[in-house]
Design a protein around this nucleic acid. Structure first.
Length: 545
RNA sequence: GCUCCGGUGGUCUAGCCCGGUCAAGGAUACCGGCCUCUCGAGCCGGUGGUCCCGGGUUCAAAUCCCGGCCGGAGCACCA
């Protein structure tokens, strides 16, 4: 409509009629059948915008400044912790866009602070492992700790051109000056003086904190942290050795310096990172400008939170020290190892992240959304079994036709076979869940799934139930409670691990057909991942209902 | 305090740049039906929104402009 008016402004006077006219046309088109629409489409094909391949392939919006085959993205974790739900946003989005645009995806470990954010060898491995588990195979993997010489070279280049200087001010001194927009006395040093001082930094003549290389920016920049921001500083690696390169280097780049250089040299075209990096875009812009490099496109997304889920690195580490959590994969946590351990599937996590997208606002992801996405995927994978968390024994006198009970492993996939239960003895003992006992004590009839309808006969020291009939239709119509059971002599001890508790109960023995790591459903209880399958007992970790 | 950025049903999100099939679409949650010897999945239907508030521009505003409120982020020799 706006289009029509801009082409034919004279219609402006008759706007009311125009609206009516368009409405009638729209109604007409909407009333057409598929075939008629197709015919119309053929006729006017050239006027219709067809979405490009990239637009069709994914729920993600088209990327600005992107061309098929030329997009390069990267995920840049600090190996001082494992991946968690929050890290998944830049990771999955970066990877997805690289894939959509048939470009490259890079993983780059940002391990340039051996002191306060000390990297750990185990985390490099765990992070890469989790990335691959998510079905993401990086085209290239880099370690910033291997690239120090490159950063030194760029530093020399900037010093030579007069865009950087070695500042000898104590940091409090500098920030005082910078707050009032005053240059420190090192700012005016000549390139050759700076070069000399920089060499001294490298050769170890300064101690930690005594010298820092700064990038000249704008001393009147509204954000004081942008004013002559620091690029390289000294870390006493004798005291804080780097886990990969030990004491080899003592001059280390700060985030903005190494990040800008690497993004450029690695040919990164699009950067996805959290909103907390917004100002860093401005800082890094100076490097690109001074060296006449082309800047990547930055997209800053909001943070992710999960109610009751703890994502903070420091809080988790503290919790582990205090014994609140057992380890980084404690099921209480929203870390990738924990989610993985609980049986969340990579596709589910991916779907969640794609749904949340690249919006700059923060998002609170309710656990039910995670559960629902995962349930959709896991439901068809998970075979069904009976398990009781709070075992309670009941017994009944067998009737002759109750001898071999077969129940499908999966109600929708008969080809997966059945679970078999053989009953031979005169009296049969079963474990049922104690919560279900209340339904029995009320003396209402109930149904043992797959066996038949029963009613309580006596509740003395032992609870005896009596078989009535095997009429499923009646059971449904009368609203009998359908309860699951585990035969005492066909059971295996099972530990049910929940985020805040564990149960020691039983599973039916047929679960031994499964493998460690498979996700199963205990009927009426929920989905679990099998963590341990021993001969005498098993462990399962709760995913969700 | 200063500087940025957000605000669409309970939650998440599409639409906002380029105002008009948007009296707002999808997902989740909730309710009901079908299916099912699970409280699952699937399919069908339903409840739920003053598009943060106020003003302005316009024939027309979720969309543009101004003001306010609320929320977030940054203000490290961390990433």
């Amino acid at each position: 409509m706006g289009k029509i008016l801009s082409v034919k402004p004279e219609y402006r006077n008759a706007i009311k009629d125009l609206i009516e006219y368009i409405k009638s046309k729209i109604e007409y088109v909407n009333s057409l059948s598929q075939d008629e629409l197709l015919k119309l489409y053929e006729e006017y094909k050239d006027y219709v915008k067809t979405p490009t391949k990239a637009e069709k392939k994914s729920p993600l919006p088209p990327l600005p400044n992107a061309e098929i085959g030329k997009v390069v993205t990267r995920f840049a974790p600090n190996p001082d912790f494992v991946l968690h739900l929050g890290s998944l946003r830049p990771l999955i989005i970066s990877y997805e866009y690289a894939k959509i645009y048939e470009g490259r995806f890079i993983v780059r470990f940002e391990d340039t602070d051996p002191r306060t954010k000390k990297p750990k060898l185990e985390y490099y491995k765990l992070i890469l492992d989790d990335i691959r588990w998510l079905g993401i195979e990086p085209d290239e993997v880099y370690y910033q700790s291997d690239r120090l010489e490159l950063y030194y070279n760029v530093a020399r280049e900037l010093i030579g051109r007069g865009y950087a200087y070695v500042c000898l001010c104590p940091s409090e001194e500098f920030s005082k000056l910078s707050k009032s927009g005053v240059a420190c006395l090192h700012r005016g040093q000549s390139p050759s003086e700076n070069m000399e001082l920089f060499d001294k930094m490298l050769s170890g003549e300064f101690k930690e904190g005594e010298a820092v290389l700064r990038i000249k920016t704008d001393l009147s920049h509204p954000n004081p942290s942008v004013r002559d921001w620091p690029a390289l500083r000294i870390i006493d690696t004798k005291r804080y050795p780097h886990p990969r390169v030990g004491v080899k280097y003592r001059v280390w780049p700060l985030y903005n310096f190494s990040c800008a250089i690497d993004d450029y040299y690695m040919g990164v075209t699009h950067v996805f990172r959290g909103v907390e990096h917004k100002v860093n875009e401005e800082k890094q812009r100076y490097i690109y400008k001074y060296l006449d490099w082309k800047e990547p496109t930055y997209i800053h997304h909001g943070r992710l939170a999960i109610p009751g889920g703890i994502l903070s690195k420091s809080k988790i580490l503290k919790g582990i020290r205090e014994g609140l959590y057992k380890s980084v994969d404690d099921p209480k946590l929203a870390t990738v190892p924990a989610l993985r351990r609980r049986g969340f599937r990579p596709e589910a996590l991916k779907n969640i992240i794609l749904r949340v997208g690249i919006s700059p606002s923060n998002a609170v992801i309710d656990f039910s959304l995670l559960a629902s996405e995962n349930r959709k995927i896991v439901d068809r994978l998970a075979n069904r079994y009976f398990g009781v968390r709070n075992p309670f024994k009941v017994y009944f006198k067998r009737v002759s036709h109750i001898d071999l009970i077969k129940i499908r492993k999966h109600p929708d996939y008969p080809e997966r076979g059945v679970r078999r239960f053989e009953f031979r003895d005169e009296y049969i003992s079963l474990y049922i869940d104690f919560e279900d006992y209340s339904n029995i004590i009320s003396r209402d009839p109930f149904r043992l799934i797959g066996i038949g309808n029963f009613i309580l006969e006596e509740a003395d020291k032992q609870v005896k139930i009596r078989y009535i009939d095997n009429d499923v239709k009646k059971a449904k119509k009368e609203g009998y409670k359908f309860i699951h059971w585990v035969p005492v002599d066909h059971s295996i001890k099972c530990i049910f691990i929940y985020p805040d508790t564990t149960y020691e109960g039983y599973s039916e023995l047929n679960i031994l057909d499964e493998k460690v790591d498979s996700v199963i459903q205990f009927e009426r209880i929920g989905y679990f991942r099998i963590e341990d399958l021993g001969r005498n007992n098993i462990n399962v970790v709760f995913a969700h209902d």
